[in-house]
Computed example of a mutant assay.
Amino acid sequence: MSVDKVPSLRALLVVAFTLLCFEGISIVHANKNFEDVRCKCICPPYRNISGNIYNRNVSQKDCNCLHIVDPMPVPGHDVEAYCLLCECKYEERSSNTIKVTIIIYLSVVGSLVLYMLFLLLIDPLIRKHQPYTQQLHNEEDAEDIPPQAEDALDRGSTVLERVEGAQQRWKKQVQEQRKTVFDRHKMLS
């Protein structure tokens, strides 16, 4: 990936985020959907009639058994007794808030995925090939690390250079430990 593509990728991410923000704002200002309010009546079994749940989109003042239960499963003289058993609740939700939350969540996950892909593409360009390689069981290579490389690792200014320096120091310590273990093993044999 060339250096010219990095600013264009950033510009693309900014445009995508701006479009998602405008979409979220337009959803917030939309009118309420008919599914946002409802009256839910739960009626238990009554005599030979099985229990049932009734839902209807009505206003809060009309949230009662007489307005919701249709058709009425009992004859006219039992309606009042049947409605006393029913429990009606007015429920309201904000589908706009749900939509905005989902959009924000998906945009965060999407931006993290794009960032991961960006790092996967840029990682080979950022990493530097070390001028030396250490053999695991070769004592000559494990003994001498060039002093210039060691000084460069200690002076690392970027985070990546510091991490690579720490990795190199750790590898050097592991090599020294292996050498010590192999020397002791040779002495005991």
Rank of each mutant, 00 (worst) to 15 (best):
P124N: 10
C86K: 07
I126H: 06
E139V: 04
M116G: 06
I104C: 02
I122Q: 13
L114M: 09
T133R: 15
T97S: 11
G110A: 03
L85M: 11
V109K: 02
L85G: 06
L85A: 14
K99C: 02
S95I: 10
L84D: 13
L114F: 07
T101S: 08
Y132F: 14
I122W: 13
L136R: 14
C88K: 12
Y90K: 11
E139H: 03
Y105P: 00
D123P: 00
T101D: 05
T101C: 03
K128R: 14
Q134A: 10
F118G: 07
E91R: 11
L84A: 14
Y105F: 05
I102H: 01
L112R: 02
L106T: 01
G110N: 02
H129G: 09
E91V: 08
E139G: 01
D123L: 13
Q130E: 13
L114I: 04
L125S: 13
S107C: 00
I102G: 00
E91S: 07
E87M: 11
L112C: 09
P131T: 07
S111M: 05
I98K: 03
E91F: 10
P124R: 15
I126R: 12
T97Q: 05
I98Y: 06
S111F: 08
L136E: 07
L84S: 15
C86T: 14
L120P: 02
I103L: 06
I103S: 04
H137D: 09
Y132A: 10
L121A: 14
D123H: 10
Q134K: 13
P131H: 14
H129K: 12
S111G: 04
L114W: 07
L120F: 10
S107N: 02
L120T: 04
L84K: 15
Q135W: 08
L85I: 04
Y115G: 04
G110T: 01
L117G: 12
P124D: 09
Y115M: 08
R93N: 06
Y132M: 14
G110Q: 01
L117E: 03
F118H: 06
L117Y: 09
K99N: 05
R93Y: 07
E91A: 05
V108K: 01
V113E: 01
L114N: 04
L84V: 11
I98H: 03
L120Q: 15
E92T: 12
T97H: 06
L136F: 09
S95T: 13
L125V: 10
C86A: 15
K128G: 08
K89F: 12
Y90S: 07
D123R: 15
T133A: 14
N138F: 04
L119D: 05
L106P: 01
L112Q: 02
I104D: 00
L85R: 13
I122K: 09
N96A: 14
Y115W: 05
I103E: 01
M116S: 09
M116L: 08
Y115Q: 07
N138W: 08
I98T: 08
T97N: 12
N138E: 07
E139R: 05
C83K: 12
Q134R: 15
N138Y: 09
M116P: 00
V113I: 09
Y90M: 08
L136A: 08
I126Y: 11
P124K: 15
Y90G: 04
F118E: 04
F118P: 00
Q130D: 11
K99F: 07
E87S: 15
H129I: 10
V113D: 00
S111N: 06
Y90A: 05
